[in-house]
């Protein structure tokens, strides 16, 4: 048994959200630089220049990368041998988010009710996903996610007869339809299989794989490459103004599913792909 005080989790959450909002991950910057070299249209080149300059200014002047500091998404893999001490874990996580947003001039983007639309003024509640895994380590990945790209999310419950071609068509058409709205160049998370609620969870989780690392499943790796290439011939381009880079990466996770089902979920992430990880 290993004891982890919830206060330690709270501190980590706070630090991760602050870092994520001001510093674009190195591997994200790297993939953007690579893509910028491939673009030919002057508009697209100018947009890439602005994106890279923005990352510099955000880091140096401590200004948030984007005015949309996002919903606080948190994925926690909890080793089953851990006992949390000193209070309620979810409350501590939310307190970490509250402090990160309130003390660092980040935007509050959460309303307490979908209809009254009254802002909670501290960016909580966070949206937390817990998974129990073997061992005694705690892995936390956070992702502040903007509303513009989130609104482009898609879920389709296919019949199995749709097959892989039906899935590919759905993905390409969804990206095409989203156009400029999700702030391309995109990162696309795809969840295939599972159930009505599990496929979108997988799509989100797929986004968390470190950018630049291959899918460990060779068949999914080749599907990711094929889809990336296909998406980049849609011509949407950076900010939808035309170009050969619409997506920077496609990540897929799959799961078993019911004999009658073939769920497919798409999670769109903007070019400002802010995520941070820590293992306690």
């Amino acid at each position: 048994m290993r004891e982890i005080p919830v206060e330690e989790v709270q501190d980590k959450i706070e630090k991760l959200f602050v870092m994520a909002n001001f510093e674009l991950p190195e591997e994200v910057v790297h993939i953007i630089i690579k893509a910028a070299h491939l673009e030919t249209s002057p508009t697209a080149k100018e947009i890439f220049r602005q994106i890279l300059k923005n990352a510099e200014i955000a880091r140096d002047e401590k200004l948030p990368l984007c005015q949309d500091c996002g919903v606080a998404l948190i994925f926690m893999e909890i080793g089953q041998d851990i006992v949390f001490t000193g209070g309620d874990l979810s409350s501590a996580v939310n307190e970490g988010v509250r402090r990160a947003y309130k003390n660092n001039y980040l935007r509050f983007s959460i309303v307490e009710d979908p209809f009254s639309r009254v802002n909670t003024k501290n960016n909580t509640p966070a949206f937390i996903h817990y998974e129990i895994v073997p061992g005694n380590e705690l892995r936390i990945i956070i992702m502040p996610k903007g509303g513009g790209c989130e609104n482009m999310s898609q879920l389709r419950m296919f019949s199995p007869s749709a097959g892989i071609n039906g899935v590919k068509k759905f993905i390409l058409e969804s990206v095409k339809q989203s156009g400029a709205n999700p702030c391309p160049p995109l990162f696309l998370g795809i969840g295939i299989g599972g159930t009505f609620e599990y496929a979108p969870y997988l799509a989100k989780k797929a986004l968390l794989r470190k950018i630049g690392t291959p899918n460990p499943d060779p068949s999914l790796d080749s599907l990711e490459r094929e889809l990336l290439e296909g998406i980049n011939t849609l011509g949407i381009g950076p900010q939808g103004m035309g170009g050969s880079i619409t997506a920077l990466a496609v990540h897929i996770l799959k799961a078993p599913c019911h004999i009658a089902s073939l769920p497919v979920a798409l999670s769109f992430q903007c070019h400002s792909h802010r995520y941070k990880e820590v293992i306690i």
Partner: peptide
């Protein structure tokens, strides 16, 4: 519309991609 004009140069249809 810049979005239409800008994409025309680069775009392939979903059918052609598949």
């Amino acid at each position: 519309d810049l979005y239409e004009i800008g994409r025309k140069k680069f775009s392939k249809s979903v059918e052609d991609i598949l």
